[in-house]
Design a binder for these strands. Sequence first.
DNA 1: TCCATTCTCTGACCTTAGTCAGCGAAAACG
DNA 2: CGTTTTCGCTGACTAAGGTCAGAGAATGGA
Lengths: 296, 296
Amino acid sequence: MDDAAQISQVRRFNRTVTERVGVLHDHYLGLDRPIGEARLLWEIGGQGQDVRRLRERLGLDSGYLSRLLRSLEADGLVTVEPQPEDRRVRTVRLTEAGRAEHAVLDGRSDELAGSLLAPLNDAQRARLVAAMAEVDRLLTATTVTLDVVDPDHPDARHCLRSYFTEMRERFETGFDPARSLLPDAGELRAPKGLFLVARLHGEPVACAGLKLPPGSAEIKRMWVAPHARRLGLGRRLLAGLEARAVEHGRGVLRLDTNKVLGDAIALYRSYGFEEVAAFNDEPYAHHWFEKRIGGA
Amino acid sequence: MDDAAQISQVRRFNRTVTERVGVLHDHYLGLDRPIGEARLLWEIGGQGQDVRRLRERLGLDSGYLSRLLRSLEADGLVTVEPQPEDRRVRTVRLTEAGRAEHAVLDGRSDELAGSLLAPLNDAQRARLVAAMAEVDRLLTATTVTLDVVDPDHPDARHCLRSYFTEMRERFETGFDPARSLLPDAGELRAPKGLFLVARLHGEPVACAGLKLPPGSAEIKRMWVAPHARRLGLGRRLLAGLEARAVEHGRGVLRLDTNKVLGDAIALYRSYGFEEVAAFNDEPYAHHWFEKRIGGA
DNA sequence: TCCATTCTCTGACCTTAGTCAGCGAAAACG
DNA sequence: CGTTTTCGCTGACTAAGGTCAGAGAATGGA
């Protein structure tokens, strides 16, 4: 299928979906109140949200948002209170009534989904859901951003904590960071290295570090959050690190890994890594890989 | 995957798509003029449209639509003229300037589609487009309506004309209606039979007739438009005819078909038909099928 | 021929969505 | 400590989207 055919298929999709889903969506959501308010109520959700965060997520003008909140407050659906730590920031929470209304919206959303599936038979339904999952995955993948951050940044720390926890659970021998050949944080920070974090909707969902000792480049601590797998993030991280290693004039990228990380090993191979003899004595490693980079 | 899991997958899809496609869509479309006008301009399209039809398609109030048209007219983008046949109905056509503006919107729509694909690599792109096509097909399928119409109705005649043309092209021996055991139109009209037409966005896209001689029920002239294939319409037509045959107290459904119609034959088998000896001497038939219906 | 219906348009009106400037309180900075 | 910045709020305003009742022309049917 050439580019033009792809474009026109995407356009057909856009049209069908905005008609069938988009229109119904607003229609279902906005039965009793303006969709602006309904969306807001929805976004506040069970645990409450800072006004600032709401403004960001929904992309609303501060004055406009304020007015919407007043309106919801007048209807007794939300309460707005200053945060104890920073009394400029205010937190919105649903009241009992607000929670009830939220549950109604939730139910409508289920109805909408049901109404799309209802006219189909079982086989078609399964195909539709599978295709939707695929579209969802791939469109989501395009919104993930990759940034270089300091390993001490909260998002980086979150990824690293998750990484350690997962290794501890998956390695047959457990995982004790103290026994591993861990780069101290300084080694994953310029000029000795760098650290990449991938974010989805602002939340950190994957990371990878690059150590840059003279004449070499080594990947460390690559991790992808379970709910963000199958988005091609591992590959994007590898590509990101490779590009940066090339920028630093390195001709080889290498890494070590544990035998239980089968998916990762498959990824390394398919990305062009080849297994080599051990180049360090990392106690948790069973395989060592290298890839020539930068056209070297 | 159980029902709840399907529903929640559909909901995730709805959310992702309305965010990524819906929002961008309005954004791209509405750069220079209100989206209401832009949508209208878009819907008028190259050949012009009756006001009535526009109102239906876009679901707009007649007063509101009228005002939008005045506004486009004032900008010199459209002309509105009464239809010659029925001077109450008015037809909207794009002027030269309107056509230019339409082309701009068209380009934007391409851009939008491109922007969804751009961040993906080739393999992902192909997967996304394939999944979109599947979603598109299945969602479209749910909007098809099935109605009993008179075989002389313009939509029925359109289907039958297309059917004859296609048979003429595909049968190895050509197809001469005069030689075939054609039911005359009366046989596919109550009380001797019936005729079903499937419509997509109001356009006829498939048909099938049922002959109801005493004690028997026979399917004739089943056809699905090429662009509406793979939507499960054949199966729906069969189900529709079966249900009506049962209503008329018949216990067996039968049909004859030509050997070149491989897809149709596969459909009949998978729907539960079994091949039987010839029950008529239709010169263009190679296979005869029967299915017990109504729990008989 | 008269009457009912269809189709579009106009005027009056309302709600929702959204922008912008500026203000006061709280926090951060130097 | 004073100054600057951040955060949310209010008032004033605009545009867009949409509803409703009714008028006037054209058509169809009895």
